[in-house]
Structure formats: C-alpha cells, structure tokens
C-alpha cells in the first residue's frame, strides 16, 4: 500500500510530463464521463459532475490506469489558478445583492455575521474533532498518528 505511494513519487522524475494536449484530453474525458454519471443520481441525493470527476480521477490514479506524469502538470496549474477562477463567483453576487436587503437591512447584516461565524465554526470544529479522533486512535488503539 505504502509502496504504491512511494513508487508513484519515484516515477515522477523518471518521466517527462505528457504533452499538454494529452493532459487536457484526459481531463475532458473524465469530465465528460462524469457528466453522464451525474444525472443517474436521484434528485433528492444530488452529486454534481466535478465531485464524481474527482473520485473518478482518483480511482484511475489509484488503479494505475492513469499515471501521475500524464496529468500532474495540468492539475498543478489549475490548482494554482483556483483563487482567480473564483472571481466570477464572487462578482456574481452583484446580481443577487437584494437577498441581503429584502428581509430588512438588519437581517442582511445578521446573515453576513452568521456566514462569517459559520465559516469559522466549520473550520475549527472539523479540525478539533479530527484532533480528538486522532487522540483516541493514539491512546486507545495505540496507532501511530505521525504523518509527514
């Protein structure tokens, strides 16, 4: 199991990265197949295309059907762009700023306060809960929780 990961790490320098068009083609194929799978989920349990795509891509990597060098460059490039790609989503709020004012100005402020608090709660609670479970694994099951 662990050898797979180290093997994958060792493979990276041996191989030249695949040509960028091939990398794009892999991304496009995975997205296309995911977009065919996504509508199969019931309406009450929506799973959008990119989420299926992430799982699919991971499975393809884990089963060595796709090698890291075939998608690595494109993936790192796209991840480095994420913050920029989110600008249109942020600006999109221009079209629906009225949701903050339609319940009255006070409610709008409270909504923003709630969203800020919710963001902090999600980050801190999830991180601390994980620390607790890690502590339990360490103390009760004597499992090494060292990473890095």
């Amino acid at each position: 199991m662990a050898s797979n990961a180290t093997q994958a790490k060792n493979q990276a320098p041996e191989h030249e990265p695949a040509p960028i068009l091939q990398q794009m083609a892999i991304f496009a194929s995975v997205l296309f197949v995911s977009s065919l799978i996504s509508p199969l989920f019931p309406k009450s349990f929506p799973v959008p295309t990119p989420v299926i795509g992430l799982v699919l891509m991971y499975l393809l990597l884990a089963t060595h059907i796709i090698k890291l060098y075939q998608i690595e460059k494109m993936a790192d490039f796209l991840i480095s762009l994420i913050a920029f790609l989110f600008v249109p989503s942020g600006v999109q709020m221009a079209a629906s700023l009225n949701v903050f004012t339609e319940h009255g100005p006070m409610d709008g402020v409270m909504m923003i306060v709630t969203i800020i608090l919710a963001t902090i709660i999600l980050l801190v609670v999830i991180a601390y809960t994980t620390a607790c479970f890690m502590w339990v694994s360490r103390k009760l099951f004597h499992k090494s929780t060292d990473v890095e």
């Binding site: 891509m57 991971y58 890291l68 998608i71 994420i82």
Partner: peptide, 8 residues
C-alpha cells in the same frame, strides 16, 4: 477541471 485536479 480545477476541482477534479485535486485528485492529484
């Protein structure tokens, strides 16, 4: 594509 890139 940026979301599925997180598989890497």
């Amino acid at each position: 594509p940026a979301t599925i890139a997180f598989a890497v």
